[in-house]
Design a protein around this nucleic acid. Structure first.
Length: 306
DNA sequence: ACTGTACCCTGTAGGC
DNA sequence: TGCCTACAGGGTACAG
């Protein structure tokens, strides 16, 4: 569900709730999410204090005392519901939540209806209750010793952070050399750039004016220099992610947080979700089309993305 | 090594 | 109303 800007927005929202707090009670309602939860997960988490929150790719990293890290991936539909001064999202005996709550995620949370997918309930010192809800259960959590993070199977193969200095036209050119996969799949590959997903890949390619169906190798260096397309793409990836984070990410469908705030970046999409609408590029009279690519929808303008 | 497809799971929207 | 299909922001496990 959430791509880098949405995960970053969730991380930022969670930061004041968790930092400096300890896990007082951990309720685990099923043995697994996408993968089995760690052995004795609740027991190992209980009593641990949160030092700080970080993000790598689409993972939220909760740094704990005793040099351990709780890594959280929200998958497609993972949400965190923060309740203060009331019951958890699971609600009271009648199934209705007591007190106020805020949903951190891309979808609204309906207390009566969605509670059956509340898989974990964390009670923090100070009284905040954080509930992990995930209908499709593509999300997962793991506990990793801090010093093993870089070698952990989930993290070892990840590509560069798109907002870091490592993502450049030259980097893309090198990684794209002699790759026949199409540009879309190349950018979706977390081993190349970590944190992009369907929406922001569509948007970055739209902004850079690049055809998602062309082979990645078109970015490869020629005559020792990266192509202008590679440089443009790197710059547009950074720009679209930066703008999206500033807007609080993208919210889809009828999402509304309990406090009324939502991400706003969905209003800025140039391509995503705009099937059959006119291309917004100045001077382009094309029409945005949707085509399935690798089992996912690609939105693009055939007229100006070459 | 690389590439494409099937699959994991649940919910929702649309056609009939 | 029900039944069916397609699709949804994620990633992995294969077969070729």
């Amino acid at each position: 569900m959430p791509e880098l800007p949405e995960v970053e927005t969730v991380r930022a929202g969670l930061e004041p709730v968790l930092t400096g707090r300890a896990f007082v009670r951990v309720e685990q309602r099923r043995p697994d999410l996408r993968f089995p939860l760690p052995e004795r997960f609740a027991e190992r988490l209980t009593g641990r204090r949160v030092l700080r929150l970080d993000r790598r790719a689409k993972y939220i990293l909760v740094h704990l005392d005793q040099d351990e890290v709780l890594a959280v991936h929200l998958g497609m539909t993972g949400r965190l519901i923060v309740s203060v001064g009331g019951n958890g999202a699971g609600g009271g005996p009648d199934g209705h939540a007591v007190g106020s709550s805020v949903t951190l995620g891309q979808y609204a949370y309906q207390h009566g209806k969605d509670a059956k997918h509340d898989h974990l309930v964390f009670t923090m010192s100070g009284g905040a209750v954080v509930t992990y809800n995930d209908a499709r259960r593509f999300g997962y959590m793991t506990l990793i010793p801090a010093q093993d993070l870089a070698q952990d199977a989930f993290f070892a193969g990840l590509g560069v952070e798109p907002l870091g200095p490592e993502l450049t036209g030259a980097y893309l050119a090198v990684r794209a050399a002699s790759r026949s996969v199409d540009l879309k799949a190349f950018l979706m590959d977390q081993r190349i750039v970590a944190g992009l997903g369907n929406i922001y890949v569509c948007e970055a390619l739209f902004r850079a004016g690049l055809d998602p169906f062309k082979p990645a190798a078109r970015l490869a260096a020629r005559g020792g220099k990266p192509t202008p397309a590679a440089g443009r793409l790197a710059a547009e990836i950074k720009a679209v992610l930066t703008e999206a984070i500033r807007a609080g990410g993208s919210t889809l469908r009828d999402y509304k947080r309990a406090d009324g705030t939502t991400g706003l970046f969905q209003n800025e999409f140039g391509a995503y979700g705009r099937e059959d609408a006119p291309c917004l590029k100045p001077g382009c009279h094309g029409t945005v089309r949707r085509k399935t690519q690798g089992g996912r929808s690609t939105f693009y303008c055939p007229a100006c993305q070459r």
